Structure formats: C-alpha cells, structure tokens
Computed example of a mutant assay.
Amino acid sequence: MAMSLTWDDVLVWRCRQQLLHRPAEAADPLVVVEALAGVQAQVTSYAEQAVAVRQAEPDPARVRDAIAQRRLVKTWAARGTLHLLEPAQAAAQLALIGAARTWETASWQKTFVTLAQLERIAAAAYEALDNRVLTRDQLTEAIVGHSGDETLREHLGSGWGAVLKPLAWQGLLVYGPSDDERRVTFTRPDTYVPGWRGLPEPAEAARVAIPAYLRAFGPAPAAAFDQWLLRGASKKAALRQWFADLLADGVIAEVDVEGERLYARTADLESLGAVEDFDEVRLLPAFDQFVLGPGTADTRVVPKEHRAQVSRAAGWISPVVAHRGRVVGVWDGDDVTIWSGDERIRAKIT
C-alpha cells in the first residue's frame, strides 16, 4: 500500500530539501546547486542570490570560485535556459533534453537553420573549441570561416543562442569563463570540465536526473518533471519507461498525496513520513528554483489568483516570499507584499 501524505506536509518537507533552513553544508555552493538540480543563471546575480539565501553566511565569491574551479558547469539546460549545474547532473539533463531532438522539427528549421547547416556548425565548433575558449564573436568567425556559409553569421551572433543550444544538448559546448572584458565565452566540456565523461544514454541519464528532481520537488508526477525539464516536450513513451524502470528497480516509489498517485525517491520515504516542521519565512530572488521546480501553474505553490504577479511578461519570474512551501507574496527592494495579510508572516521576514 502506498504511503499517504498531505500537501501541507509535502510542501513543508520540500523547504528543507531545498536547503531553506540554511544547513552548514550549504556553505559550499556545489551542495546547493546539486540539491536544487541546478540553479537558473540567465542573470548571474540571481543565481548568486539563490545560493546565498540558503547559506547561513552568504558569500557570492564562493559561487564565482566554484565556477572558476570548474566544479560548476554553466550551460543551456532545463527549458532552454542557462543554468549552473553539478557536472554529472549537467550531463544527465543534457542527454535527456537532447533525446527530444527538438531542433529537428520543421518549425525550428524554418525559424533558424536547416539540419545540414546545423551539422556544419557543430563540426566547425567542435574543431574550433578543442582546448580553446572563444568569445561569441570569435566562435562565429571560426564557424563561418570553416563552413563558408555567411548566412549563419546573424544566427550565431544572437544573444539568445538558439543555434548553439542544440550543440550544448549534444554535449559539444558549454560556457567558459568571462574574459577580461566580461564577454561571454564558450568551450568544449570534454576539454574543459575535469572528469567529463560525455553524455550518458537517455535511460542511464534518467536514473540521475529524475531522482535529482524528486529530491527537491517531489513527490510529483512524471508530467511535472517533463514540464520542468523540457516544457513537456519529452517523448512520452520514453518518459513512461524511465519512470517505470526506476519504480521497478526500487529507486522511486509511488505515494498517495490527498488522492493523487505521485512519485518520490525511495530514499526520502522515511523523512516524508516524519516531516520536520519549518515555519521560517524566506525572501527568494527572481527565477528561484522554489518556483521554477514545480512551475508557476502549480496552484499549491503559487495561488492561481496571484500567478500573474509571479509569472510576468517576457518570461520574468518575480522575487517571492516563501512560507511553509508556498508562495505567499512578492517583493521588490523594501517593498514586500503579503497576500494573506498575515502580520505573523511579515514579522518572520529575515
């Protein structure tokens, strides 16, 4: 019989899983990034804040050091956005994203480049980035020169990196350190990241990525994992098989949360059955995994009537006030809005 849980307990349990209690081990940014299955890093300062809010003694320099030491990988990962990731988690996520082959659709090729052009881009980038770190302009020149295709220049120069993302998802490209002028750079993971073993097969990758997600955001359905990783674009037969294999092998288990059959890591069942309370209030930065993990459509985390205040125009995710696993307000500088009007929540803000 599946374990029965309440949503109140599940959401409180997630707070500690996401290190909002600021344990001693969170002093190492790698611990935080790994616990959250990645930290979104479209804006570097928000990634630093996401780590800092989980530390008893915040120090943004530790994040920068971990990147410089190549202990963290920066690349396009979940939902096509930039993330900081622990290397093994990076390889697993990239393998699963790449398995969807989203760049092979007719709409993608019509908007960006053809598969033949993408193959030339990949071959040129692989050669150009061998034991080298190049700026976007340098990489563009190398690819255009190698391919002889001037039409690629505009696509390669785009800050959105649409034609470079498929290279990342095939394990051919990651971000390098910013240069002296703070310009973005790129390199190859196999010649840059210590111990990089390439991308695993999807079935093997799922054994890393799915438990990592459930560790922070479980119990959850397979669809929640798919939405978080790839906006629901995974091949559904493969997705079902990944979860079925993990279930059969005892890595994950089914639990009942107020009538919903969801998945949790088997390793987490004991703590889920004896949830340790967490009543602190946390001010979380924009684009925090607390919101991105379950997604803003999850009304248990983000109240439906306030979703527009959290998920805003142009993909902006607001800084939020978190209490007992739920978003209870938003903030901007000294301006804090608590939707419930509960002054006890306001009094707990630290």
Rank of each mutant, 00 (worst) to 15 (best):
V327G: 08
G195R: 03
R79T: 01
T151Y: 11
L229D: 07
E201I: 10
E204D: 13
E204R: 10
F217E: 05
K236G: 03
Q138I: 11
R79N: 07
T105S: 15
G259S: 04
L173H: 06
T299V: 13
Q93A: 02
Q89H: 11
P58T: 06
V321S: 03
R14E: 11
W13Q: 09
Y126W: 12
D277G: 07
V336I: 08
V193F: 00
Q42S: 09
Q170T: 03
A56Q: 05
V301P: 09
F290Y: 05
P221L: 10
F278D: 14
G176N: 05
P303Q: 10
T102E: 14
A90F: 13
V63N: 00
P221I: 02
R312G: 02
K236E: 04
T44N: 06
A224F: 02
L239T: 07
E270M: 08
D179N: 14
Y46A: 10
D8P: 03
A203M: 13
D245H: 11
V184G: 06
R70G: 03
V330D: 06
A267H: 05
W13R: 01
V144T: 10
A223I: 13
E119K: 13
L11V: 14
L167V: 10
V174F: 08
L262R: 09
S107C: 08
A24H: 03
G333C: 14
G171M: 07
E181C: 12
D28Q: 07
R307K: 12
P221V: 04
G329Y: 02
A61N: 07
K304T: 05
L239R: 06
A203L: 11
V336A: 01
L84P: 01
V53A: 01
P211L: 04
A244H: 07
A27H: 00
R153Q: 15
L115P: 02
L5F: 01
T111N: 15
A253W: 04
W7P: 02
L72V: 05
Q42M: 05
W103I: 02
G157F: 05
G218W: 08
V184H: 11
E86T: 04
A61I: 14
Y46W: 14
Q289D: 02
E127R: 14
G232A: 12
V33H: 00
L284Q: 04
Q49P: 03
E154P: 07
R344A: 12
P194I: 07
F243C: 14
D190L: 12
Q55C: 13
S4C: 01
G250H: 13
G259Q: 07
V310N: 09
N131L: 13
A106M: 08
V63P: 01
P194G: 00
T187F: 03
D28E: 12
D268Q: 03
Y213W: 09
Y263A: 13
G38C: 00
A122T: 14
L129A: 04
V31T: 12
A68L: 09
L239Y: 07
V321M: 02
Q40Y: 00
G329P: 00
W242A: 08
G250L: 11
L139V: 03
L272V: 13
L85Y: 03
Q42W: 00
E48L: 11
M1P: 05
L214S: 00
R54Y: 00
V33E: 03
G295V: 10
L283I: 06
E204L: 15
T337H: 09
R215H: 15
G171A: 05
